[in-house]
Amino acid sequence: MPSNYLQIKDLSCGYGSDFNLQPITVGLKRGALAGIIGPNGSGKTTLFKGISGQLPLKSGSVWLNNCNLQSLKLRQKARRIAVVSQFVDAAEISVEDYVLLGRLPYRAPFQFFEPQPDVLLARKYMRLTGIWKHRKKYLSQLSGGEQQLAAIAQALTQEPELLLLDEPTSHLDITHQVQVLNLIQRLNKELKLTVLMIIHDLNLAAEYCDFLLMMKQGDIHSCGTPREVLTYDRIEQVYNTVVVTQTNPLSGKPAVFLVSENILNDIKARYGKIKR
């Protein structure tokens, strides 16, 4: 399948003169589960905001399914792209109402009642994400992981073609990390949803994504499959940190290990330098 479902052409954006992306060109296949990785301040979030339209572009364009996203109105864009932010703003609103807000792009502002199909759709995705049992609770009463699931349910209710997630697992424990990522993987497979997410944890990125974009200083350093991108020399170039890479014995995906300074010093004392 050609890599032009989501096409980013010479995209550059940023914050005034402080930080700007180098012109970025990259494409994603339909049905890809892609991850953006890179150190803090490398431009992950800036690229993300450029794609989602939250930051105005300085140059270039973003195309989704041969449609220029900048030419779309907010409402039309919201029917194609759904965004799950890093933190869910826990408003005093019931989970069911929150998920139903995902149908907003399809409603006229003065349309007062939710049509029954919308309600059924919201129910379907609440069941799919496993928050059905919490539907009557306020969003603020849920745990961080459950809020993240509710946000994903809302995004799905938008019925988008592209799902963007900003570090969906960064503040969750491993149970919820795996739960959220398993769900995203399932949505990717079953709903054929194209997913692009910022993800900090290299091991989770390797395990779940089929395509990785590694960023450094506002530019793409390398991209490809996890095996291509997550080699120890590339990671060390980008992160300036010594790592050891191995293969996960079950999944066959790359796994990245960190090494403490003490151990590194011991090895240096013993062998003179670190041999690979």
Binding site: Q54, A78, D89, A91, E92, P105, R107, P109
Partner: peptide
């Protein structure tokens, strides 16, 4: 004000989220 009832609901979630839901 009723023209804005739903946008107001979306704004409960913040300006950013409201924009992602198609609200100007």
């Amino acid at each position: 004000s009723y023209l804005f009832a739903r946008p107001l609901n979306a704004l409960l979630l913040g300006q950013e989220k409201a924009a992602y839901l198609g609200i100007n």
